[in-house]
């Protein structure tokens, strides 16, 4: 019995990271109708930001987090201005290709600046974790799950109970109508990119102590996070979270009870089944295009 709880705990921890990156995918999609394939690179940059601030510069961990997240906000703004904004009136495909190009550029810039070597990043705490019965709760996984839950709740409150959140929702639903109502659409989209980059950065900060910091960190997470957004229902915030957690748990249980080498296959089998049987995902509406 202890084994299944251990697997569930680890699956939820990994799934929470997928969920954080998936949230970034969803927010940008809702605001711009575009899939940002550089979302995983935001996570990688978050990991490197922490290495530079806390390991190289020796700053306190909390200060490293603040500086890294501030830098991620800047990255999000630059990304919006450089990658999305010039192509905002073009169709879906050129913008998506632009984000793919940006992801390659970011990866190679990091490679050129910091080299290919993976490096370690200390966890949020030196405390390794605790056991309840046969289940070991790794402190980093606990932090990932707790912080992800807090972020989801804050995001819900922000979108549902603040004026700024409602403006963002209005922009995501109908940009022209939002503009006619006096909402500054470009500012809202800028805010969305900034927030998505920060979310990606948080995912990177949380997962880097487990997976190490390397240029491949983002790609490792992004593919599963993308699958999570589809399973959850593309464009749905709750769906991204549920999708991420589902993938994390399914691949971990599948690996233990069926086959470890086919661990990734379970995640993508789930994706395939959803595309076949419920293409709108957990929470998505069954419509082809947004109004």
């Amino acid at each position: 019995m202890g084994i299944i709880f251990q697997l569930l705990f680890t699956g939820l921890g990994i799934g929470a990271v997928y969920a954080l990156v998936a949230l970034g995918f969803v927010l940008i999609y809702r605001a711009t109708n575009v899939v940002n394939f550089a979302q995983g690179q935001f996570a990688m940059l978050g990991g490197y930001g922490m290495v530079i601030t806390t390991v190289t510069l020796g700053l306190p961990y909390w200060l490293g987090i603040l500086i890294t997240l501030a830098l991620m906000a800047v990255v999000g703004a630059i990304f919006n201005l450089g990658v999305y904004y010039p192509l905002r009136f073009r169709s879906f495909l050129p913008v998506v290709i632009s984000t793919i190009g940006a992801s390659i550029l970011i990866t190679n810039l990091v490679l050129a600046l910091y080299g290919p070597e993976p490096t370690t990043l200390p966890g949020l705490t030196d405390y390794p974790g605790f056991s309840i019965g046969p289940v070991f709760f790794d402190s980093q996984y606990v932090a990932i799950i707790v912080i992800s839950l807090i972020l989801v709740v804050l995001q819900y409150v922000f979108f549902e109970h603040t004026l700024l959140g409602k403006k963002l929702q209005a922009v995501s639903q109908d940009k022209e109508m939002a503009s006619l109502l006096g909402i500054r659409v470009s500012a809202m989209i800028m805010l969305t990119f900034v927030y998505s980059a920060v979310l990606g950065g948080i995912a990177g900060i949380l997962v880097a102590p487990i997976l190490f910091v390397s240029v491949g960190l983002g790609a490792q997470i992004a593919l599963k996070a993308f699958a999570a957004t589809i399973i959850g229902g593309f464009g749905d915030v709750a769906g991204a979270v549920v999708g991420g957690l589902t993938i994390g748990v399914v691949e971990t249980l599948g690996a233990y009870y069926v086959s470890v080498p086919y661990k990734d296959a379970f995640a993508f089998l789930l994706l395939f089944l959803f595309l076949l049987l419920r293409p709108q995902g957990f929470f998505g509406e069954k419509i082809a295009e947004k109004a």
Partner: peptide, 17 residues
């Protein structure tokens, strides 16, 4: 005997086995 695919982010199932 536990085989794993390269670039695996989590080895919990292997360790538990």
């Amino acid at each position: 005997s536990q085989g794993y695919a390269n670039q695996t982010p989590d080895f919990t199932p292997v360790v538990l086995a």
